[in-house]
Amino acid sequence: MKRRTLLGLFLLPLARAQCPLTPALTEGPYFLRDVPRRQDLREGLPGIPLRLALAVQDHTCRPLEGARVDLWHTDALGRYSGVNAPGVFCRGWQPTDGRGRVEFLTLFPGWYPSRTPHLHLRVEVGGRSFATQLFFPEEVQRQVYAQPPYAERGMPRIGNRQDGIFRADLLLSLRPEGEGYRADFALTLPF
Results as ranks from 00 to 15, higher is better:
residue 17 A to N: 00
residue 88 V to A: 07
residue 51 R to L: 13
residue 57 Q to G: 01
residue 101 R to Q: 11
residue 145 Y to L: 14
residue 190 P to R: 01
residue 190 P to G: 02
residue 76 A to M: 08
residue 2 K to W: 10
residue 18 Q to F: 00
residue 126 G to W: 02
residue 9 L to V: 11
residue 185 F to E: 04
residue 65 E to D: 14
residue 188 T to Q: 02
residue 142 R to Y: 13
residue 61 C to D: 03
residue 107 L to D: 01
residue 62 R to V: 06
residue 116 T to D: 09
residue 188 T to I: 03
residue 29 P to R: 15
residue 83 V to P: 05
residue 93 W to D: 04
residue 102 V to Y: 05
residue 137 P to Y: 13
residue 17 A to I: 02
residue 25 L to A: 10
residue 152 E to K: 13
residue 174 L to V: 09
residue 6 L to W: 14
residue 85 A to M: 06
residue 167 R to S: 11
residue 163 D to F: 14
residue 157 R to G: 08
residue 61 C to T: 05
residue 20 P to Q: 11
residue 29 P to S: 15
residue 173 S to E: 15
residue 92 G to S: 12
residue 57 Q to E: 07
residue 124 E to N: 04
residue 7 L to I: 14
residue 101 R to H: 01
residue 146 A to I: 13
residue 62 R to D: 04
residue 46 P to N: 05
residue 55 A to T: 08
residue 37 R to P: 08
residue 78 G to S: 06
residue 77 L to T: 05
residue 117 P to F: 06
residue 3 R to Q: 10
residue 44 G to F: 00
residue 8 G to V: 07
residue 52 L to K: 12
residue 161 R to G: 06
residue 46 P to K: 08
residue 6 L to Q: 15
residue 125 V to H: 03
residue 191 F to K: 01
residue 123 V to W: 00
residue 79 R to G: 00
residue 108 F to L: 12
residue 150 Y to P: 04
residue 170 L to N: 15
residue 92 G to K: 07
residue 147 Q to I: 12
residue 55 A to P: 00
residue 71 L to C: 10
residue 151 A to G: 09
residue 142 R to K: 15
residue 20 P to L: 09
residue 47 G to Q: 04
residue 113 P to I: 05
residue 109 P to L: 05
residue 49 P to N: 06
residue 161 R to A: 14
residue 73 H to W: 00
residue 106 T to I: 05
residue 18 Q to C: 01
residue 134 L to H: 12
residue 131 A to P: 05
residue 9 L to I: 12
residue 79 R to W: 02
residue 189 L to C: 04
residue 166 F to S: 11
residue 28 G to N: 09
residue 119 L to G: 04
residue 46 P to E: 12
residue 117 P to G: 09
residue 183 A to E: 10
residue 158 I to N: 03
residue 164 G to I: 14
residue 95 P to R: 15
residue 191 F to L: 01
residue 117 P to K: 07
residue 35 V to Q: 06
residue 35 V to Y: 05
residue 83 V to L: 09
residue 80 Y to E: 03
residue 13 P to W: 08
residue 189 L to F: 02
residue 128 R to N: 07
residue 3 R to G: 01
residue 36 P to Y: 13
residue 116 T to V: 12
residue 120 H to E: 05
residue 81 S to N: 03
residue 145 Y to R: 13
residue 158 I to F: 04
residue 54 L to Y: 09
residue 150 Y to G: 01
residue 32 L to N: 03
residue 168 A to M: 10
residue 189 L to R: 02
residue 163 D to K: 14
residue 38 R to S: 08
residue 98 G to N: 10
residue 117 P to N: 10
residue 20 P to S: 12
residue 189 L to S: 03
residue 138 E to T: 14
residue 87 G to H: 01
residue 138 E to Q: 15
residue 146 A to Q: 14
residue 130 F to T: 01
residue 113 P to D: 08
residue 99 R to K: 08
residue 78 G to I: 07
residue 154 G to F: 10
residue 9 L to D: 10
residue 92 G to V: 11
residue 43 E to I: 00
residue 1 M to C: 05
residue 14 L to M: 02
residue 66 G to P: 14
residue 20 P to G: 06
residue 82 G to A: 06
residue 37 R to C: 13
residue 14 L to T: 04
residue 157 R to S: 09
residue 96 T to N: 03
residue 66 G to L: 12
residue 96 T to P: 00
residue 153 R to I: 05
residue 63 P to R: 06
residue 20 P to E: 12
residue 8 G to L: 13
residue 114 S to Y: 04
residue 190 P to W: 01
residue 157 R to P: 00
